[in-house]
Design a protein around this nucleic acid. Structure first.
Lengths: 213, 213
DNA sequence: ACGCTTATTATACGCTCGAATAATTCGCGC
DNA sequence: GCGCGAATTATTCGAGCGTATAATAAGCGT
């Protein structure tokens, strides 16, 4: 009647492990395969522990959703701030969104698994909304800085219209490029994204595309 | 010990009923709520009947997925062919894709519920791919006819790049516009779509937007 | 080095799922 | 109008789900 030996972990790392295991399960076999038992096994613990750190499975899924979305936005934002000019930052932001690890089958699996919960569960809807608005705001900021740098006057309303359009384009390319990953070479997608954004903002051809310092 | 009385339906209409009930269940409570029992109840039959018409629940879900996707494409194509000029057909196609019933919470629910299966189940992946390519081809045809009408020479490769970009834009607007339905007025989304496509194709402002006869 | 707190395991419970099977009713061909 | 095939119902089964609870081992403060 020997029990398993185990290690007592700190709350932070245990929660992180559990969320990571949740994401692994979802990525591998969909939300249907992300059962309490599977997740626990993947995390190297037993099922009961989950309810010691989360009030239920749903709350853990929500935490996992937050992590995925935050990760996507942060990757793109982190890429952007490396740029030295507003134009470069905008360019990097766009490219990052259609390049791994954002454009990645695993990321898509996770995103897709959660997106369907938005319609049914308002907690997920809130998380989505929060991240959508934050992404849109980041894009809007990059855009308006870019237009200032280009000495091109733009009403806030028009800037927002542009942001919505660019956001849609990037999302669409991301979605299709990842779903049909074998149809597009990696650079092909990024190139298409830049050309399309150029056109969308009515820039000169090459204004964004051209490599710059 | 009285059994329920029942009506013997033709195979075609029974299958259609079952698929419709499946979609109702998914739209209302997500894929998790689309259980054999719920679907059967909604269709006014008992659960066992499902396996008389489909080899299992999964196959019925696939049939339902096909129906949803075909419906979306057909709605847009049907709207397009009403147009008298290539420009009008392109315009109508785009507007139809960001207007109810394509842009609709129910449609999104259904789409989202299925999209996550693409990563896990290759049967769903095949259905997706089939519909994606058919949508892209329809768009490409509309585009090239439009450019011919406009007497604007375009290489097939560039036409395809445009098609991919427009497709992404339309998909993205559709997705965001439906997810954040309360953020956009109905005409706002369509207007933004036309303005963005205009820019994407490097047309004159108003070339697509302006109402025309 | 011991005892106390608690993180973790182990086990059980009630429920619902998809599927299989057997019983029954329908309605068409004759 | 009757019988026969097949569509439909009714019932059962085993598996797996999320959750609850009790037993236990870990490791820190002292």
């Amino acid at each position: 009647m020997n029990r398993r030996t185990y290690h007592r972990a700190s709350e932070a790392e245990r929660r992180e492990d559990l969320i990571a295991a949740t994401l692994d399960c979802i990525a591998e076999s969909g939300i249907q395969g992300a059962t309490v038992r599977q997740i626990a096994m993947r995390a190297g613990v037993t099922g009961g522990l989950i309810r010691h750190y989360f009030s239920g499975k749903d709350q853990m899924l929500q935490a996992a959703y937050r992590k995925v979305m935050a990760g996507m936005t942060e990757t793109a934002v982190a890429a952007a701030i490396e740029g030295e000019t507003a134009r470069s930052r905008l360019r990097r932001f766009i490219v990052a969104n259609v390049t791994p690890p954002v454009t990645d089958p695993r990321t898509l699996s996770l995103w897709a698994a959660f997106i369907s919960h938005i319609q049914t569960d308002q907690s997920f809807a809130a998380i989505h909304r929060e991240n959508y608005l934050s992404f849109l705001e980041a894009l809007e900021t990059l855009l308006s800085a870019f237009f200032v740098e280009e000495r091109r006057a733009l009403s806030p309303a028009q800037c927002r219209t542009y942001a919505i359009g660019v956001n849609a384009l990037v999302d669409g390319l991301w979605l299709e490029g990842t779903l049909a990953a074998d149809t597009f070479a990696e650079h092909e997608l990024a190139e298409n994204a830049l050309i399309s954004v150029e056109a969308l903002l009515r820039l000169q051809p090459g204004e964004l595309t051209a490599e710059q310092r």
